[in-house]
């Protein structure tokens, strides 16, 4: 328990520090790379909480897919190293600070009121074969039909993208 708590503190510190770097870097590509560090740290926290599936999805979808999209957009839209500066930024910073405090206060109040999760919550999951197994059993049993429909949907998306994107004959 102690080790887990220390691990959590370390990972949370990494996630927070990387997040601060994301919003303070001038170079957008650097910001994007720090964002990946944040994603990894959050994914590690999920694993720590026995939410292995969520951790893997976090890595695949966010650190994999969405980051690549971010980088593409940054490279296409704006030259790295440029960005708005000066007065509007100061207002922006002040407003962000107020909003952050507000969200933190709301969330903090919520957690304090509802109390901590009962201990043993993760142990129950572990006894039933773990988060990963529970999710995959649901996916391949009760959700088998939607799962197969998704495969058709992705094929349609793929073919549609090729039809619209390939050079004109």
């Amino acid at each position: 328990m102690e080790a887990q708590f220390l691990m959590f503190l370390a990972l949370a510190a990494v996630a927070l520090a990387a997040s601060v770097m994301v919003i303070t870097r001038r170079n957008l590509v650097h910001s994007a790379l720090y964002l990946i560090v944040t994603f990894f740290a959050v994914a590690a926290i999920y694993v720590l909480l026995h939410a292995e599936f969520l951790g893997v999805v976090q890595l695949l979808v966010y650190a994999g897919g969405i980051m690549v999209l971010f980088l593409f957009v940054i490279l296409l839209v704006e030259r790295p190293g440029t960005g708005p500066a000066g007065k509007p930024m100061r207002w922006h910073a002040a407003a962000s600070g107020v909003l952050t405090l507000l969200v933190a206060a709301i969330l903090g109040a919520h957690f304090l009121r509802s109390g901590m999760a009962p201990p043993g919550g993760t142990a129950v999951l572990g006894a039933s074969g773990g988060n990963l197994e529970t999710v995959s059993l649901a996916l391949f049993r009760n959700y088998l039909l939607p799962f197969e429909v998704v495969s058709v949907l992705l094929l349609v998306a793929l073919v549609g993208a090729i039809v619209l994107a390939r050079p004109r004959a």
Binding site: P146, V149, V150, L153, V156, G160, L164, R168
Partner: peptide, 24 residues
């Protein structure tokens, strides 16, 4: 909701492609 939504999106993605089919 899962089946309904997936059916709807399969239809919608195919229809978006059809609407934009005339590339020229």
């Amino acid at each position: 909701f899962v089946t309904l939504y997936l059916g709807l999106e399969t239809m919608a993605l195919a229809v978006y492609t059809l609407v934009g089919f005339l590339r020229a």
